[in-house]
């Protein structure tokens, strides 16, 4: 089972991505240079920020569920 910390971060990341996507979507309602600016200066950075936060949180998560050189190797010392 994983630390709830990662789930909290995923929640944050999702909110950012969702807010960013919503701003991007709303920016299509108006054909105007400021709508483009809202898209590029608010929508995209929010979405990208959320995605990066998510990537960081999975990379930094404790590797409990990842199979790898775990305790299984250690018993070799005790052999014999």
């Amino acid at each position: 089972m994983e630390a709830p910390g990662i789930e909290r971060r995923i929640k944050w990341a999702s909110s950012m991505v969702a807010a960013g996507l919503l701003i991007q979507l709303l920016s299509f309602l108006k054909l105007h240079p400021l709508a483009f600016v809202a898209f590029i200066a608010l929508g995209v950075p929010l979405t990208a920020g959320g995605a990066v936060l998510y990537l960081i949180s999975i990379v930094a998560a404790p590797h409990a569920s990842v199979p790898g050189p775990g305790p299984q190797i250690l018993p070799s010392k005790n052999v014999g």
Binding site: F39, T47, Y54
Partner: peptide, 24 residues
């Protein structure tokens, strides 16, 4: 989660960007 928080938003943002460039 990887699809929802990374792949699809990246595709959406790219599609949105080309749409804006086109409309401009």
């Amino acid at each position: 989660a990887f699809v929802a928080l990374f792949i699809v938003p990246a595709i959406a943002a790219w599609a949105g960007f080309s749409m804006h460039m086109d409309r401009a």
